[in-house]
Design a protein around this nucleic acid. Structure first.
Length: 816
RNA sequence: GCGGGCGUGGCGGAAUGGCAGACGCGCUGGACUUAGGAUCCAGUGGGGAAACCCGUGGGAGUUCAAAUCUCCCCGCCCGCACCA
């Protein structure tokens, strides 16, 4: 018997599969389709073990579905635009294209070494004109429909990346850049946006997708829908009004102050002369605040009085107007009504400023006299609210809301935290935004027939913090497509999240230059059945791609609402020391080395065995030895005659017993594959292998039951370890690929044994067990259990207080 | 603070309310070997000579029976964080 030479086997079969075109994926209307998609990598240069953890189990799932009779599409590509390439260019003088393409070449090689069933003919590289042309085309379609627009706005800017960012790309209360962790700053800039807010309500509807609760919750929180009332406050003694938004209009009788955000335009207008210097000092302090680190979460809620008063719309009372930075100009109307008794923040502020705190909502079971804790923010019953007193909160909202609407120019409105998607990037290595600025015609979109607007190669990369396109005369200066006069091109490029919002459509026909994707292919393959990837994309990529699909639907390109039906988030592989892997820590595990040392099949097997897929965990350089040994045992079991093997503690199985075990294993492994429980699937296959070892040298060895068992073992292992199983499959005389074979189906009639072990408990503790025929009734089981010597000894002549018998499982005798 | 997840041997992890610790790593002893970081056999939660007792973060509860269900507490991880 030859040794298990994984190197020879893996390279042999990778080459053979390639030559046979085994993984070519074509439309076949005779078979049901299954579009399996895993997030495409950024070509950083090296495939990380984390990429393997994302892709190898995805590949096993794709292979499993293929064996189950589905026509599977499982493509791969590269998310190739982005900053690292440009930074490499600035630092080392390599052109971003050269750097990126070289990295892609290396990563393609690394990906091939995994032995995945990617159809490389469908590969997508997002930085080539044949791809980004369609980014530009989508931009133009959106522009036509008012979904892409330009506006001057205070936007987030990362000083290290030298570019603006979308709101989603600013992380945490510290407001750090998602890429580089640098604190972002606000800048007023004229920028391009996609009107994702137009789809806010639809994006909140998750009824058509089977996604993890966590992701849906994160998206829902991000969208942040809240319903309430907007109305005007009149400023006493002036014509000025300011508008506020509240979700608790039922508490309006509890207003004891109003607050304007420091940036609110009315602050200057209403501030009394004697308060001016204090207010301006506060505004200055607040404007610095965003630049100073805002680390202290428990900041005091402070503010200053403007000297002006608003008129309460229902009571007509004077309401002092304050300026305070806990009110944000960027949310709602930038002004609020202060109800300290029923809002935590207003409460803190009122306490600090010495303002009254009148209660206008009481707990539902309030007795009318005793005090209750303030602030009271739960629903309850309105009190001290004039004609609206004694109403439950919901009812009070409706009645008071309508009254305010009438008296104070109000309306019911919905506010969202979701902002429009800022797509302008002041960087070179991205898709040029297809817009020109004409002196006469203003903003003019590039005509579709002129696409793509090519990103020029001969740009100069200088660490100036400005886009090289700004200084590229030939790119910059152009003629207006409308009037033919002199014009300048837009020099901003698109956010790379635009690329990844629709790449899974481009896989269908990556080289078509007349349409973004082939409608015939689309009709068959779409939508994606199973998407897998990291949860870090929950509110960026995964929100953007849903938005894109809804736009594409409205453009008539597709006839469904959601891009991916099911989503699964794999866990994260940590370094051996339990920390995150990073080059600086020097704890990175290199898949190339592992493949060299143990083979791709062993790496795949171990990654799927080490933990539940959604959990991840620390890599173990020892643990992989277990996977290596397992494959080696399978090899010796099938390829040769293993000697003297097997646990001798009990009698080995008869043929019928082996047949039963085979089919029980098939049933268990099939169930596990259906739920991505690769770790327990592999454990079952290990147990099965161990049992087969025990049968070596017995009459069952070589019998039909044995041959069936070995074939089924290989079939079930094939999606996990595709090379070794293919080799052994052929050694066993099969002439076609194991990956074209059908997944074994459990023979239900073979699953049941004649007898079953019944556990006997006394007072809930296991004391004995016995074999009983499977169909014995509960009464009979109880009788059999009571007759056992151990049970008799404990009972010692007494009658049991109770006997619980569960057929097929257990008998519990309760005594004493 | 709010929302979600998780706490099981020395380690990774298994367990439709029904035998806790499957499977693997590691470890101990043995066989075979010139050799073993190969392979095979036996053992391996803790205590105890044994019968048996104790054990799934801690405490209470429901149940004939709880890692699993309920409540309270502790710890860790992730997300959001002045969103009116």
């Amino acid at each position: 018997m030859a040794e298990y030479d994984f190197k020879a086997i893996e390279s042999k079969w990778q080459k053979a599969w390639d030559e046979q075109g085994l993984y070519r994926q074509e439309v076949d209307r005779q078979r049901p389709k299954y579009y399996a998609l895993t997030m495409l990598p950024y070509p950083s240069g090296d495939l990380h073990i984390g990429h393997w953890y994302a892709m190898a189990p995805s590949d096993a799932n794709a292979r499993y579905h293929r064996m189950r009779g589905y026509n599977v599409l499982f493509p791969m590509g590269f998310d190739a635009f982005g900053l690292p390439a440009e930074n490499a260019a600035i630092k080392r003088g390599i052109h971003p294209r050269t750097w990126t393409m070289k990295n892609i070449e290396n990563m393609r090689r690394q990906l091939r070494s995994m032995g995945a069933m990617f159809d490389w003919r469908r590969e997508v590289v997002t930085c080539v004109p044949e791809y980004y042309k369609w980014n530009q085309w989508f931009f133009l379609q959106m522009y036509k429909r008012g979904l892409a627009y330009k506006k001057m706005a205070p936007v987030d800017f990362c000083p290290k990346c030298n570019t603006t960012l979308a709101r989603e790309q600013v992380v945490g209360p510290e407001r750090l850049c998602e890429r580089c962790d640098t604190p972002v700053v606000k800048k007023d800039l004229d920028q391009w946006f996609f009107r994702i807010t137009a789809y806010a309500d639809e994006l909140l509807d998750f009824s058509k997708i089977d996604w993890p609760e966590r992701v849906k919750t994160m998206q829902a929180n991000w969208i942040g829908r809240s319903e309430g009332v907007e109305f005007d406050f009149q400023v006493r003694g002036t014509e000025h009004r300011f508008r506020v938004f509240t979700t608790r209009i039922d508490t309006i009788y509890g207003v004891s102050f109003a607050v304007l955000a420091p940036e609110h335009p009315l602050v200057d207008e209403v501030t009394a002369p004697e308060n001016r210097s204090e207010v301006e000092a506060y505004q200055y302090k607040a404007s610095r605040q965003s630049e100073i680190d805002r680390l202290s979460t428990e900041r005091e809620r402070d503010g200053v009085f403007t000297g002006a008063y608003a008129i309460h719309p229902l009571t007509g009372k004077d309401i002092p107007i304050y300026v305070a930075d806990y009110v944000l100009m960027s949310y709602g109307t930038g002004a609020i009504m202060g109800v300290p008794a029923h809002d935590e923040r207003d409460y803190d502020f009122a306490r600090r400023m010495g303002l009254p705190i009148p209660a206008v909502v009481a707990p539902p079971d309030w007795d009318g006299q005793s005090s209750f804790g303030l602030p009271y923010v739960e629903p309850g019953v309105s009190i001290n609210s004039g004609e609206f007193s004694n109403l439950p909160t919901e009812e009070a909202k409706k009645r008071i809301g309508n009254a305010v609407i009438e008296k104070a120019n109000g309306k019911w409105t919905v506010h969202y935290r979701l902002r429009d998607w800022l797509i302008s990037r002041q960087r070179y290595w991205g898709t040029p935004i297809p817009i020109v600025y004409c002196e006469r015609c203003g903003i003019v979109p590039v005509p579709e027939e002129d696409l793509p607007v090519i990103l020029p190669d001969d740009a100069e990369f200088l660490p100036t913090g400005e886009s090289p396109l700004k200084f590229h005369e030939k790119f910059l200066h152009t003629t207006c497509p409308r009037c033919g006069g002199p014009a300048e091109r837009e020099t901003d490029t698109m956010d790379t999240f635009v690329d990844s919002s629709w790449y899974h459509y481009r896989y269908l026909s990556p080289h078509r230059d007349d349409v973004p994707f082939d409608p015939e292919e689309a009709a068959y393959w779409l939508p994606v059945d199973q998407y897998t990837g990291g949860v870090e994309h929950a509110v960026m990529h995964l929100l953007y791609t849903r938005f894109f699909t809804k736009v594409m639907r409205d453009l008539g390109l597709v006839n469904f609402d959601e891009p991916m039906i099911r989503l699964y988030n794999q866990g994260i592989i940590l370094a051996e020391d339990g920390a995150r892997m990073s080059k600086s820590r020097g704890n990175v595990v290199s898949p190339d080395d592992l493949v060299e040392r143990y083979g791709a099949d062993a790496v795949r097997t171990y990654l799927m065995f080490m933990a539940p897929w959604d959990q991840g965990g620390p890599w173990s350089s020892r643990g992989i030895g277990g996977a290596v040994r397992f494959l080696d045992r399978v090899w010796r079991l099938v390829a040769g005659k293993p000697e003297g093997a097997g646990d001798k503690r009990s009698a080995p199985l008869e043929a019928a017993g082996l047949h039963r075990l085979t089919h029980r294993t098939i049933q268990k492994v099939t169930e596990d594959f259906d739920h991505f429980r690769f770790n327990t699937a592999i454990a079952s296959l290990m147990e099965f292998t161990n049992e087969l070892y025990r049968l070596v040298g017995t009459p069952v060895y070589g019998s039909p039951a044995w041959e069936e068992a070995v074939d089924d073992l290989l079939l079930m292992l094939a999606p996990i370890a595709p090379h070794i199983t293919e080799e052994l499959w052929h050694q066993r005389g099969h002439t076609t690929s194991i990956h074209l074979a059908a997944w074994p189906v459990p023979d239900v009639s073979a699953l049941a044994d004649d007898t079953v072990t019944i556990v006997v408990q006394i007072n809930g503790k296991v004391r004995d067990r016995f074999e009983a025929p499977v169909n014995v009734t509960a009464d009979e089981l109880a009788r059999l259990a009571l007759a056992l010597p151990k049970v008799q000894a404990v009972l010692d002549g007494r009658a049991p207080r109770k006997v619980v018998a569960v057929p097929g499982h257990i008998v519990n005798v309760v005594v004493g």
